[in-house]
């Protein structure tokens, strides 16, 4: 990075630290913070979409669709989320390869599960073994995002389902009395009103999502936990920057990062809630009105 970093062994003090903190691996470490942010930024809307789909399906009048929706919202109730993370990463990968295998190699007759192996034709491999490294990494990240979205979609479906049920029944009856169809009632009356009721649950979910991001490490993505372990481990004289076991300091850094992230979110969500409550006929809205009046 800096010109004086050519001979790391001769450096001392602040210059040593400056050089140490700007090595290529450290740049990758800082980049992994962006990976985490990107994961949150992609997962949140996708999970919300999944959740909306799940909640809508759970309210459907078509029985199989309703069962699917109810089943989807129920999966997270009794089973640890980490089990889902570990499960979906392999299951999704195998599902994709299986589908491609069926499409690309129809002439293949051998069974796919041979004992303890999962064998698909080489054209169906994901990613292709000839692909460059970045494709493998992107595919891994994509699987992780999809896994997160499925699991958090189930959580969001729960929250949104509750939000939909919290909309006063009279509102829907009025809409029906005005002659609106089911579809019109849903889109014009139910959906615009449910967000206020769902927001506390959704903000809770946002905090949970932030705190679940270190699980990326378990899904095989080179995230901040991976780099903290990698960089913090003791380095012998073979390395340019030898040091002892510094993992504690790296993890302290991660702790501060997460505490800051949750604190900032907490403040921002409180502001958003205050904004959405403004003028609402709820206790919160009434309290705001009184505070201004007095």
């Amino acid at each position: 990075m800096f010109s004086f970093c050519a001979e790391p062994k001769t450096l001392e003090g602040v210059t040593w630290l400056a050089c140490y903190l700007t090595t290529g691996k450290h740049i990758a470490f800082y980049g992994s913070f962006i990976t985490v942010m990107v994961l949150i930024a992609i997962t949140a809307p996708v999970a919300l979409l999944f959740g909306f789909g799940g909640a809508t399906a759970a309210r459907s009048t078509i029985a199989p669709l309703r069962w699917f929706g109810k089943g989807y919202t129920a999966i997270v109730r009794g089973i640890p989320d980490i089990a889902f993370f570990l499960f979906f990463v392999i299951a999704l990968d195998q599902a994709f390869e299986f589908l491609r295998h069926k499409v690309l190699c129809p002439e293949w007759t051998d069974p796919i599960r041979q004992g303890n192996d999962f064998v698909v034709c080489s054209a169906a491999k994901l990613p292709l073994s000839s692909s460059p490294q970045w494709v493998h990494e992107t595919y891994g990240f994509f699987l992780a995002v999809l896994t997160f979205a499925i699991v958090f979609g189930a959580f969001a479906a729960n929250v949104l389902y509750g939000g939909m049920r919290a909309v006063p029944r009279g509102q829907l009856e009025t809409a029906e009395a005005y002659g609106m169809s089911r579809r019109q009632t849903f889109w014009r009356i139910l959906v615009p009103q449910m967000w206020v009721y769902a927001l506390p649950g959704l903000s809770n979910l946002w905090m949970i999502l932030i705190k679940a991001t270190p699980l990326l490490f378990l899904l095989g993505v080179e995230d901040i936990v991976y780099w903290a372990r990698e960089l913090g481990g003791s380095k012998t004289q073979v390395f340019s920057y030898p040091h002892g076991d510094w993992r504690l300091y790296y993890f302290l850094g991660l702790l501060v990062f997460y505490l800051a992230l949750t604190k900032v979110s907490e403040v921002a969500l409180a502001k958003l809630m205050a904004r959405l409550t403004k003028g609402q006929a709820t206790m919160g809205g009434e309290a705001q009105r009184k505070a201004v009046a007095s």
């Binding site: 705190k211 679940a212 936990v225 372990r229 993890f251 991660l254 702790l255 997460y258 604190k263």
Partner: peptide, 10 residues
């Protein structure tokens, strides 16, 4: 405010 995962590592 922090993930349990990080707490374990730390």
């Amino acid at each position: 405010g922090s993930p349990l995962f990080i707490q374990f590592f730390l």
